[in-house]
Design a protein around this nucleic acid. Structure first.
Length: 286
DNA sequence: GCCCAGGTGAAGC
DNA sequence: GCTTCACATGGG
């Protein structure tokens, strides 16, 4: 598992509950506090409470995915070559749908560091206490039922601002059973996307994040400000295409694992290429 | 102070 | 069909 970059994977804006402590990454998966440490030929995993089965962790980390097979499906162009070179070992996680959905409702027009703060605050306020490391208490992500029982002013106290009514309303719909998140695993992409977008505070971008990071639909392609910038700078440097044009481009250009390609472009833009694209290679695919 | 942040929904043309 | 705007809050 030497082709697994824990730092890139856990801190690249897919999940918001991981913090680095020394060489290790601390987080919570479901109801378990987890500590992950990169070692020579793999990842050392520890849980605060003893476990016998590790299937849930392999599923979350997607360790069985053969990365090389994914990368081979990317477009053979200069931007993707640079992105894959810059993001070796970056993977997509497979997260819990509710936690992913709720977290991304809280993500709109927030920086990743701030999303982490808000999510941490929500977990401490409403999440169930679970055993953590060194005798500390950790917190599970709050259930939709628990949040559904809250009030809007209560949620606003967690610094989520105008996102509070969206999270509350969506929690109530999910808690009521009107939309069954687990049922979306086995329906077509377009159906799942439409169901998610029917929820308050969930538009195309957030729906695609959940489709990609929780359900694993490989062609879901979240387009945020970073991806718009990436597509403009790397693929249309001389023109000024509208977002709708770039959306259409992204739906066909990046192939069967477009979602993976998206995460590579996103991480690439935010790290190597974050200062406005100076020195970025350009290639017009048309 | 200013601008921006893994957007969405509603109102105005 | 668009384009524009309000929405809270914090970081650089």
């Amino acid at each position: 598992m030497s082709d697994y970059d824990l730092a890139a994977t856990l801190a690249s804006g897919q999940a918001f509950r991981w913090t680095q402590k020394g060489d290790s990454w601390h987080g919570v998966i479901g109801r378990r506090a987890v500590r992950l440490t990169p070692v020579t030929d793999g990842i050392r995993a520890e849980t605060a409470a003893p476990v016998t089965d590790w299937g849930w962790l392999k599923e979350y980390l997607q360790t069985d995915v053969i990365l090389q097979q994914i990368l081979e499906t990317f477009p053979d162009d200069e931007p993707m070559r640079m992105a894959t070179r810059a993001c070796r070992g970056l993977r997509l996680l497979r997260q819990d749908p509710w936690e992913c959905l709720a977290s991304f409702i809280l993500s709109s027009t927030k920086q990743i560091v701030q999303i982490r703060q808000i999510v941490a605050s929500v977990c401490e306020c409403y999440g169930e206490p679970i055993p953590g490391f060194e005798g500390e208490t950790a917190f599970a992500f709050p259930t939709p039922e628990r949040l559904a029982a809250e009030s809007e002013p209560g949620l606003r106290a967690c610094k989520m601002g105008f996102r509070a009514p969206y999270l509350l309303a969506t929690a109530r719909i999910v808690a009521s059973g009107k939309i069954q998140l687990n049922g979306l695993k086995s329906v077509p992409l377009e159906t799942a996307r439409a169901e998610l977008m029917s929820l308050p505070g969930v538009g195309r971008k957030i729906a695609d994040c959940v489709l990609l990071f929780a359900y694993g639909f490989p062609t879901a392609f979240p387009v945020d400000v970073w991806i718009l910038r990436a597509l403009r700078q790397l693929y249309f440097p001389r023109r000024r295409p509208r977002p709708s044009r770039l959306m259409r481009f992204s739906e066909t250009y990046f192939g069967p694992n477009a979602g993976y390609a998206q995460q590579y472009l996103f991480h690439y833009m935010r790290t190597v290429n974050s200062r406005g694209g100076a020195g970025a290679a350009r290639l017009n695919p048309a």
